[in-house]
């Protein structure tokens, strides 16, 4: 009896395993389908798409739509392609990610290792900033950018994303550093290290996973942001997302779907790349601190 039941247990487990993988494969295909169609159509001449054949592979392979989207397509009024806006987005995202991560790390360090009166309250307020919807800060932010005379510039956008990101990065680093042994900080104090020396020499070198989490999160949010980009940067300083919208909505002549698809993939590529390169740190970092050991 015991043997028989063990037998069926093994059989049913290998059967359910096949079933699980089948279902997973189906889901993966389902999720990849839109991307596949985008990719396929970005490599077709326009006539094949307008001819009504969106799902099939191209009869004539071409990279012309990609070249066009990158350097010659009409964005608004200028035929510049997406390239300058891609550069805008990089110039905006890299400093904003770096600044918000560093300040978040500093905040987390102070909030956990240099406890002061009201630290919990300040952390609560910072945390609260994570829940404020974008729309609410639009008008006050526009006013501040005006006062600082950086409205409509990439610098202005950097400031907006930097400030908006501090809440999240502080949350990440505070929780990570809360589990970081305080005795290490005390030992460094006795060794004569100062506030910033402890931060640079002891805390940051041990923060790899959480830095990865913070960078991925911030990069994805900032790169994909449309609302702030559309509101605070105009014309030549617009980020990639806004430019993509302009590309698709430019109403001169025929709609070049293949170029639109190519542009959309370009806009999504950096975040995809970041996830592929650093994704495993993301999962590991998110789990860090939640489970002991």
């Amino acid at each position: 009896m015991a043997i028989a039941s063990a037998d069926t247990a093994i059989r049913s487990s290998s059967f359910s395993r096949v079933l699980i993988y089948l279902v997973l494969l189906l889901f993966a295909l389902f999720y990849l389908l839109p991307f596949g169609i985008m990719l396929v159509n970005s490599l077709k001449p326009l006539e094949e798409i307008t001819g009504g054949n969106m799902v099939s592979l191209p009869r004539e392979w071409t990279i012309a739509p990609w070249l066009s989207a990158w350097s010659t397509a009409q964005i608004g009024v200028e035929p510049t392609g997406l390239r300058p806006y891609f550069i805008n987005s990089i110039v905006m995202a890299v400093p904003a990610v770096a600044l918000s991560t560093i300040v978040g790390a500093l905040n987390g360090y102070v909030l956990t290792k240099w406890q002061f009166r009201g630290a919990t309250l300040i952390f609560g307020l910072l945390l609260f900033s994570c829940f404020i919807p974008f729309q609410i800060v639009l008008i006050p932010m526009a006013r501040i950018l005006g006062i600082l005379d950086i409205a409509g510039t990439t610098t202005g956008l950097i400031l907006v994303h930097f400030v908006y990101g501090i809440g999240f990065t502080t949350l990440y680093f505070r929780n990570y550093y809360a589990a970081f042994p305080t005795e290490l900080v005390r030992a460094a104090q006795i060794d004569g290290a100062g506030f910033f020396q402890i931060f640079w020499r002891i805390m940051l070198p041990s923060s790899g996973p959480i830095i990865a989490v913070s960078c991925i999160w911030q990069f994805t949010n900032i790169w994909n942001d449309f609302l702030f980009g559309a509101s605070f940067a105009s014309g030549g300083s617009a980020p990639m997302t806004v430019a993509l919208n302009n590309l698709v909505n430019s109403s001169t002549g025929v709609r070049e779907y293949n170029v639109h698809f190519a542009g959309a993939i370009m806009a999504a590529a950096p975040t995809l790349l970041v996830y592929i390169v650093a994704g495993r740190y993301f999962v590991r970092g998110l789990m860090a601190g939640s489970v002991k050991g």
Binding site: P181, E183, L184, R186, A187, A188, I190, R201, I202, S206
Partner: peptide, 10 residues
């Protein structure tokens, strides 16, 4: 000072 957890910089 020698700490209980040794507090060596990892």
């Amino acid at each position: 000072m020698v700490f209980q957890s040794y507090a060596l910089y990892p």
